[in-house]
Amino acid sequence: MNVRKLPRFLIAVVLFYIVVEVLYRTEILNGYLLHIINLSLIYVILATSLNLINGITGQFSLGHMGFAGVGAYVSGSLTTLILKLSVTNPASMLPFLLSIIAGGVVAAFVGFLIGFPSLRLKGDYLAIVTLGFGEIIRTIFNNIDAVGGPRGLLGIPKFSNFTVILVAAFLTVVIIRNLIESSHGRAMLSIRENELAAELVCVNTTRYKVMASTFGAFFAGIAGGLLAHLIQLAHPTQFGFIKSVEVLIMIYAGGVGSLTGSILAAFGLTFLSEGLRLGIRALADATGLPIGGEWRMVVYALLLIFIMLFRNEGLMGMRESRIIKNVEVD
């Protein structure tokens, strides 16, 4: 590994942290915008981890949010029901972080289990099986009364803050990047490009597919835990098929296989969806047309179609920004 080039991304993230903190402390950036940034960062974790499974290894998955749900419910149950942590107690931070990691580990285990049966399947069949797993996980949450059933897991303390989420997102990107740039990552890429050929050159495709699924699920579980502790609720409907599709859209809009693209799209699409609130209102005020919030998602969907039609390789294609890249590849 080329250690000399490691700090570039670190410096960028530290700068981002300082700018956001300063703007927030001076009240130029209000709590609303900070919340959107937090949410975008959680989407960064979800999108980059899905990219590992989907973009890098080429295993099309439609159930990513199911893993996030596992993480959310496991960590939420730990902090809320079992440990009964309180935000006011500073000693709670460590158990909270451990709970989040526990959520990630359980999600990873589920990802590992799902990785095996999925091995026999490819392409669309794999997509539909992952979709099925995601929905089954959601149905299970819906029917466990101990974690609230359809009411959801309530009263989760608000531990997630900008610092925690940013650090988690940073670590996720760095770990996934290092994985991709390692020989393991090359093996995963070879599966995406041509599985049969990969096997012929002695890549243990089984091992790498399960590995991608396990790692991806781990980070999704972390993201789910952070989300639950940000909005103080874990609810079955948050982890269904439609939500998985939202993350999928991010990696395709950003460019499959590009972590830079995933990061940009996670921020871009989250801010776009909020910007449209203001845009639609401004348009209604300016023209006097009776258009309300119900048109926001129409415009969002149209923009998505246009991105795919006119830039179907996504914003970044397969390229990676120099800031993110660790080693230069010839």
Binding site: F60, I249, E294, Y300, L302, I305, M308, N312
Partner: peptide, 17 residues
């Protein structure tokens, strides 16, 4: 797969529209 995402976009568009 870019067609697939477009398909999802079309589906969202029709419903929301």
């Amino acid at each position: 797969l870019s067609s697939l995402i477009t398909a999802i976009g079309v589906s969202m568009f029709i419903e929301y529209f």
